[in-house]
Simulated assay, not measured.
Amino acid sequence: MPPTYTLADVERAIRESWCDETRPPECRADWDASNPARDQCGVTALVVNDLLGGDLILGEVHIDGAHVDYHWWNRFGLLDVDLTREQFAPHEVVVGREVRKRPPNNELRRCVDEYLLLRRLVLARLGITDEPAVESETSSTVGAG
């Protein structure tokens, strides 16, 4: 029988698993333990999608009306679940929301190793040992944010 867990279990496991190594390499110099959600959105959205399904949502981060980055989160029917929502400073605004199709793992282009590490850490915290093989070969832009 597959393990069961709640959204709260998944969120706790993800938050306990975030670390500098699960962030995009170009962001690691800016690691701030007081804001562990920073730059974790892409890998987090993928892990939530692995565990719970749903849709991947993409928005843009704007500062003073200018696009500076992307932000990823999950949607389940009418419910948006954004486990990295607190990463943003007051002057950073997420605009838009577009449903994006989940690329196969072997087509991910960014943050593949970071995603695989977060996935492995989260599954271990949830006590899931029977995981399907995930390829580390890469090609979509889900990752940073």
Rank of each mutant, 00 (worst) to 15 (best):
N35M: 10
P36T: 10
P36C: 03
P36V: 06
A37M: 08
R38N: 05
D39N: 09
Q40P: 06
C41R: 03
C41Q: 09
V43A: 14
T44L: 06
A45G: 11
L46C: 12
L46E: 12
V47N: 04
V47D: 08
V48W: 09
V48R: 04
N49S: 13
D50G: 02
D50S: 07
L51F: 12
L51S: 06
L51P: 02
L52S: 09
L52I: 08
L52C: 15
G53I: 02
G53Y: 08
G53C: 10
G54K: 02
G54P: 01
D55K: 14
D55A: 15
D55Y: 13
L56T: 13
I57S: 06
I57L: 15
G59I: 00
G59F: 08
G59Q: 04
E60R: 08
V61N: 02
H62E: 06
I63G: 00
D64T: 05
G65Q: 07
A66K: 12
H67E: 05
H67A: 10
H67T: 00
V68M: 11
Y70M: 05
H71T: 01
H71Q: 03
W72F: 15
N74P: 02
N74H: 03
R75A: 15
R75D: 10
F76W: 13
G77C: 10
L78D: 15
L78P: 01
L79A: 12
D80L: 11
D80C: 07
D80E: 12
D82L: 06
D82E: 05
D82A: 11
L83W: 05
L83C: 02
T84M: 05
T84R: 03
T84S: 08
R85Q: 10
R85L: 04
E86V: 07
Q87I: 01
Q87L: 03
F88P: 00
F88G: 04
F88K: 11
F88R: 13
F88V: 02
A89K: 00
A89Q: 01
A89N: 01
P90Q: 02
P90Y: 04
H91Q: 12
H91A: 13
E92S: 01
E92C: 02
V94E: 05
V95M: 10
R97T: 01
V99E: 03
V99I: 15
V99R: 14
R100M: 14
K101A: 14
K101Q: 14
R102D: 02
P103T: 12
P104L: 14
P104G: 13
N105Y: 05
N105H: 12
N106Y: 10
N106H: 11
N106C: 08
N106Q: 07
E107A: 14
E107K: 10
E107L: 12
L108V: 07
R109H: 09
R110S: 09
R110G: 08
C111H: 05
V112T: 14
V112G: 12
V112C: 15
V112L: 07
D113S: 14
D113C: 07
E114A: 14
Y115M: 03
Y115N: 07
L116Q: 12
L116D: 09
L117I: 05
L117C: 04
L118K: 00
L118I: 05
R119S: 11
V122D: 00
R125N: 13
L126T: 07
G127R: 11
I128S: 06
I128G: 04
T129L: 13
D130W: 07
E131F: 07
P132S: 12
A133F: 15
A133V: 14
A133N: 03
